[in-house]
């Protein structure tokens, strides 16, 4: 049976992991390569690097990190943040990433999804959607962590992205992000039940049961988390043991 995936996300700024990572037995808490290896050993099903510098100069740094990680980590690796062109895709895939997530650039130019899917295959095109609730209960796509609003509806955008050739949707709730009050179950379910591609839920998890809820009621295929893992509040094996005890299929 297909397992639900647990995905730690590492925010990388100028080649260093930010949002402080609080692990013992780590030589260098800011080294993305070492952290990716550690998470992989702990049973993370994928690793996501989110490049939050995303300036042109930082691109080379990220490529270097991806190359090093791909030499010692053998689970799928996704890289996102500031990906604008098909050439960006090519460079990062060639460095050893398996998937690329795109966000604002795809909103500005939808053909980025279709071009990349045609060139590299849908399996490596992940559309990241940041969304928040409108007063009327619908979900609005926003950019730059919520600072820029768009006219797009999250469900419609996910459906369109699937048609354009996206292979997965990474859905982040701006309202829930950082609250630790749980994933936005309603939004996750609304998107996951509208597309036939996997949905990775992101934003808001704080407890073990939040993972259970997003996989059952929320119908997510994978769950992404950052600080809860980095600060050691929960560990990947702990989350998996819990889910397994509640009859959710996970890779142990």
């Amino acid at each position: 049976m297909l397992a639900k995936r647990i995905i730690p996300c590492l925010d990388v700024h100028d080649g260093r992991v930010v949002k402080g990572v609080n692990f013992k037995n780590l030589r260098d808490a800011g080294d993305p390569v070492e952290l990716a290896g550690l998470y992989s050993e702990m049973g993370a099903d994928e690793i996501v690097f989110l490049d939050i510098t995303a300036t042109h100069a930082a691109r080379r740094t990220v490529i270097d990190i991806v190359e090093k990680t791909a030499r010692c980590v053998f689970v799928p690796l996704t890289v996102g943040g500031g990906i604008r062109t098909v050439d960006d895709f090519r460079d990062i895939l060639r460095a050893g990433a398996d998937k690329i997530s795109v966000n604002s650039a795809a909103v500005r130019d939808k053909s980025l999804i279709s071009e990349a899917a045609k060139k590299f295959g849908s399996q490596c095109v992940v559309l990241a959607i940041d969304a928040k609730r409108r007063a009327d209960g619908s979900f609005q796509v926003v950019l730059n962590g919520g600072r820029i609003e768009t006219e797009l509806d999250a469900i419609e955008w996910a459906k369109e992205a699937e048609k354009l050739g996206a292979g997965e949707i990474m859905l982040n709730s701006i309202d829930a992000d950082g609250t630790k009050n749980g994933f936005d179950i309603e939004m996750t379910k609304a998107v996951a039940s509208s597309v036939r591609i996997p949905v990775i839920a992101s934003g808001g998890c704080g407890t073990l049961s939040h993972f259970y809820d997003v996989f059952t009621e929320g119908q997510a295929d994978a769950a992404l988390a950052a600080s809860i893992f980095h600060y050691g509040e929960l560990t990947v094996p702990q989350v998996k043991r819990y889910l397994s005890s509640r009859s959710i299929a996970v890779r142990m």
Binding site: M1, L2, A3, R5, D45, I197, P198, D221, R251
Partner: peptide
Amino acid sequence: GLKLPQIGWNS
């Protein structure tokens, strides 16, 4: 009847 492609870890 499940989603295609199959993406992820299976036993």
